[in-house]
């Protein structure tokens, strides 16, 4: 790791102030992804602002009947929350499908949203990668792409966003609360958090410099049956080949989001509308613009079959 200076912030305001004073600073919460990348010289911050003691670690009911999840709520605590388990079960299911117990004890809600791709070429500083080193090229295109994106990518980058939690939050239409250095705030739907790679895959989110995610807000629960099926090569502690998150109601209506297929949690409201028609129709809509590689084309039938399996479970 490159040497860095380190400060503990005691409030969000202090963290933001420090960030404004220290160019090259990064916030560190759980650290489970940032430190991983710093050890490999992929992330090289000159300063770390430890935000683990700024609060934002509670889950509160909102007046509207939803939940406000503090940015520093640990994945384990999020998954364990009584109302999340009962009313937003897809979120608990997604969170506990990710990583390991040890990592979930440490990883924060906001950090999970902002974790970076697991593309093996992004992780290898000897290889060209447009995300890590803009303009250097993409080794994955024409290289090993079995686990990478089939949709929403670009000809500069086919990395996937690896978060399971984000897929459930996208399905739940979560809202991201963001605080700025001047004390003002803004909120965005999670759909607007992730940026398509286009020609600048190094820019992954719409967060501006110095902005801090403070909370994730869930709208009131929608009811329905909740499913999160993560398909992977081993039974646990692995990233998704594909994952399928579904909420489906007794009348057959519902919504669906995918993980492991795109640079962001993949959801199309038009596909939700096709859900009552079955897995084939919904998948056809969801993945209509897919441009898989030879190695990852299997993800299309895999999504359809996984969704089909979920829908048949939902009916039974």
């Amino acid at each position: 790791m490159r040497p860095f200076s380190y400060q503990r912030a005691t409030s969000a305001a202090e963290a933001l102030r420090l960030a404004s004073e220290l160019p090259g600073a990064r916030f560190i919460a759980g650290g489970t992804n940032l430190l991983d990348l710093m050890k490999l010289s992929i992330e090289r911050p000159s300063h770390l602002i430890d935000i683990n003691r700024i609060g934002l670690d509670r889950i509160e009911d909102t007046p509207e009947g939803g939940l406000r999840i503090g940015a520093l709520v640990r994945n384990t605590d999020l998954a364990s929350h009584k109302r999340v388990r009962k009313e937003y079960a897809v979120l608990t299911k997604a969170v506990v499908a990710g990583a390991s117990g040890q990592i979930r004890n440490k990883a924060s809600t906001a950090g999970n949203l902002l974790q970076r791709t697991r593309c093996p070429y992004f992780y290898n500083t000897d290889q060209p990668c447009n995300k890590r080193n803009p303009g250097s090229g993409c080794s994955a295109i024409g290289g090993f792409s079995r686990s990478l994106a089939i949709i929403g990518a670009s000809d500069t980058c086919i990395a996937t966003q690896p978060s399971d939690m984000a897929v459930a939050l996208r399905l739940l239409d979560a809202i991201i609360e963001i605080e700025r250095q001047d004390g003002s705030g803004r909120t965005i739907p999670i759909a607007d958090l992730y940026k398509a790679p286009g020609t600048s895959p190094d820019v992954e989110t719409t967060l501006a410099a110095g902005e801090l995610i403070t909370a994730v807000v869930l709208p009131p629960p929608s009811g329905g049956k909740h499913f999160y099926h993560k398909v992977r090569d081993r039974a646990s502690y692995a990233f998704a080949l594909v994952s399928v998150a579904v909420i489906v109601h007794d009348n057959g209506s519902g919504k669906v989001a995918l993980g492991g297929v795109a640079p962001k949690p993949w959801r199309l409201e038009t596909a939700d509308a096709a859900l009552p028609l079955g897995a084939e129709a919904a998948t056809a809509t969801l993945l209509a613009s897919a441009t898989p590689t030879h190695e990852n084309a299997y993800k299309i039938p895999l999504v359809e079959r996984t969704l089909g399996s979920i829908l048949s479970q939902a009916r039974s």
């Binding site: 560190i28 650290g31 489970t32 430190l35 384990t76 390991s100 040890q102 004890n105 440490k106």
Partner: peptide, 25 residues
């Protein structure tokens, strides 16, 4: 790198990967 669990310790009653945590935290 948090990929094996050999470094697991219990901090404040919870297990974590000690490799993915700065001492100062």
């Amino acid at each position: 790198h948090g990929q094996c669990g050999a470094c697991t310790v219990i901090v404040n009653g919870r297990r974590i990967n000690s490799c993915l945590s700065l001492a100062l935290m």
